[in-house]
């Protein structure tokens, strides 16, 4: 039996989430037997995947598939699944993976469980644990179909090395014009800044920052930690920051290693959206702010005094621990 993983690349480099899905598939293979096959598009170094337990890489270098296209990529993964007679497919929960997985599920008539946080239970029925109600609960979901798709939540399983040797096979993947109904005209991406989805650390600002002109404090701190910047819903609603930075129930989910919330009181919708983060720090001048109940560490204090000091101290720390 083969377990297939979609290992996403960006400018030829594998995303960290790709190593995570590979590690996760390897753990399933250890449990159920079988091998791990990765589908990679235009990877500079497909061999890299063997560090994470991948036995075979189907490497797609089709000229037409240089740029991500959800339907065409789903078609290629469909072909690969059939060729490998894979019964489990694992994808990450990046924007692109979430885009293509439902298309893949229909192509393969496969049951799809998203936001999965643990290795499946394969003893009785095939069940996975996934988050529901925006992290306010977990749900055990049975996947009843013979082919199963798992969307693995970012940072829920982690990256685990498991050295093996991988065979690299060039894979064509038969795509047709039908798969290119959507024509991408332009991509506007902030390449010198880490995205919220990929960041290890996210620094998030709320109304307590008093205005967009004060965001340099957040940005300086973020730069020190190579962090992404985010904001609360009121901040994006007031237009202080772009919508893309809004995290919470109706914004982006955050499942990062370290989440630092500054001047955010912690509305239930915000907390739900960020609660999958491992360590949460809150800085707020109101000791009654609900965020203190959700955080691991907290400082009661004035953001305008605390942030510059924290930035400076972190710079020293980084210099000493480089």
């Amino acid at each position: 039996m083969s377990i297939l993983v979609y290992t996403e690349t960006e400018n030829g480099k594998f995303k960290k989430a790709s190593f995570e899905v590979a590690s996760y598939a390897k753990a399933i293979a250890d449990q159920t037997g079988g091998s791990v096959t990765a589908v990679a598009f235009n990877a500079a170094n497909p061999q890299e995947l063997e560090k994470y337990g991948v036995n075979k890489v189907l490497h797609v270098e089709n000229e037409k598939l240089q740029k991500f296209n959800a339907d065409a990529y789903a078609q290629v993964i469909t072909e690969a699944t059939k060729q490998e007679t894979a019964s489990i497919i694992v994808v990450s929960q990046s924007a692109n993976a979430k885009y293509l997985a439902p298309l893949l599920a229909v192509n393969l008539e496969a049951g799809y469980a998203s936001n999965v946080v643990e290795v499946p239970n394969t003893e009785d029925a095939f069940t996975v644990k996934r988050t529901a109600f925006t992290n306010k609960a977990f749900n055990e979901t049975a996947i009843n179909t013979s082919t199963k798709i798992i969307g693995l939540s970012t940072n829920s399983f982690g990256v685990h090395e498991s050295e093996t040797s991988a065979e690299i096979i060039s894979f064509e993947g038969a795509v047709t014009d039908e798969n290119f109904k959507i024509n991408v005209e332009s991509v506007d991406k902030n390449t010198d800044k880490v995205s919220i989805a990929d960041a290890e650390v996210v620094i998030s600002g709320g109304r307590g920052l008093k205005g967009p002109e004060n965001w340099h404090l957040i940005e300086d701190l973020a730069e020190t930690l190579n962090a992404a910047t985010a904001c609360s819903k009121p901040v994006s609603d007031m237009g202080w920051r772009p919508h893309g930075e809004h995290v919470g129930q109706t914004g982006k989910p955050v499942a990062t290693n370290l989440y630092i919330a500054i001047g955010i009181s912690g509305a239930i919708q915000h907390l739900a959206g960020i609660s999958a983060s491992k360590t949460k720090v809150v800085i707020n001048n109101d000791p009654e702010a609900p965020f203190f109940k959700a955080a691991d560490y907290g400082i009661v204090g004035d953001a305008f005094e605390v942030i510059p000091k924290l930035t400076e101290k972190l710079k020293e720390f980084k210099a000493n621990n480089a």
Binding site: A105, E109, A110, G111, Y112, A113, A125, T127, A132, N135, K136, A137, F138, N139, E140, T141, A142, I143, N144, T145, S275, V282, F292, K293, A294, A295, D296, Y297, G298
Partner: peptide, 17 residues
């Protein structure tokens, strides 16, 4: 193709430091 079987809630959080 999938069925929600059982729900659990996250373990209560420890006190903030």
């Amino acid at each position: 193709s999938t069925e929600a079987k059982k729900f659990t809630k996250p373990a209560p959080k420890g006190e903030v430091k």
